[in-house]
Simulated scan of single mutants.
Amino acid sequence: MADPNPSRRNETSRRAVLTATLDLLQEVPYARLSIEGIASRAGVGKQTIYRWWPSKAAVLFDAFLLLSEAAEGEAPVLPDSGDLRADLTAVLRATVAELDDARLAEPMRALATEVAHDASLAEAYHRQLDAPLRAAKRRRLEAAQAAGEVAADVDLDVAIDIIWGPLLTRWLQRSGPIDDRFVDALVATAMDGLRPR
């Protein structure tokens, strides 16, 4: 018997499209991913996809939101044990684990590529994904600054880039290992620059 609720049918179809996108990215490179392929895997007409999303990149972005569960739930919070070095080490090691997760890695690489080329997608990415995470990072550094672990005159926005930038750059460019040793060196270097003189 058909579901009489169109909104439920739409949500079921939407999730099928997003799940199909993620599944296909485990099988084919992003460059070979097509709307036709997604529609076929999801069991919907490609006109359904084009009605809801303007491009393959937009489908990918919504799929990533679904995967990361960033579209719903509470604002992100970084741990605050009172020891900034330990907290940064834990957060960066967790980030490495996410970047190494096969289900996340290819969608994230593809999304990074699209964000670099699509201004409207970049704006959505920064507003929906990056800004909440960046705010959480800033709150943790503000707490460390108030506790005297970070110098009062440190520009916290620059500090965020210094801490997280090298990890993401190395991962995106595949320019070297991102392991516990790298994380430890990164945190140690950042802390040397952030602590009060």
Rank of each mutant, 00 (worst) to 15 (best):
L129K: 03
A31M: 14
L104K: 13
L167M: 04
V17Y: 04
R51Q: 13
P107C: 01
I38R: 07
D179E: 11
P79S: 05
I178C: 08
A136C: 03
Q26P: 11
D118R: 05
R197N: 09
R170T: 12
Y30V: 02
L186D: 08
A185E: 07
I49Y: 01
S7C: 03
N5K: 02
A151S: 09
D179M: 07
A39E: 04
R9T: 15
P29R: 06
R195W: 06
P54K: 02
I178Y: 10
Q47C: 12
P107M: 00
F64L: 13
Q173P: 03
A151E: 11
G45F: 07
T89E: 13
L66G: 05
R15A: 04
L88P: 01
M108Q: 12
V44T: 05
P6K: 01
E36G: 14
I38Q: 12
L66D: 11
E74I: 14
V77S: 14
Y50R: 15
S120W: 04
P4E: 04
W171T: 00
D153P: 12
R134Q: 13
V91Q: 11
R9N: 13
G43H: 09
L133D: 09
K46G: 05
A57R: 06
P79L: 07
A146P: 02
Y50C: 12
S55L: 03
A39H: 11
A146W: 02
G37T: 14
V158Q: 08
Y30P: 11
L66F: 06
A102N: 10
L18S: 04
T169V: 10
L111H: 00
R32Y: 08
A39G: 08
A97F: 13
R51F: 03
D101N: 14
I38C: 09
R127K: 14
L92W: 08
R41Y: 08
E142C: 02
V59S: 05
R140V: 02
R15L: 06
Q47R: 14
S81N: 01
W164E: 08
A159F: 01
P132Q: 01
S40A: 15
L88R: 03
G193K: 00
A31L: 15
S13D: 09
P79A: 02
L186C: 10
A159Y: 00
A70V: 08
E149P: 00
F61W: 03
A144M: 05
L141Q: 01
R103G: 10
G45P: 12
T89Y: 08
V96P: 02
A86H: 02
L104Q: 13
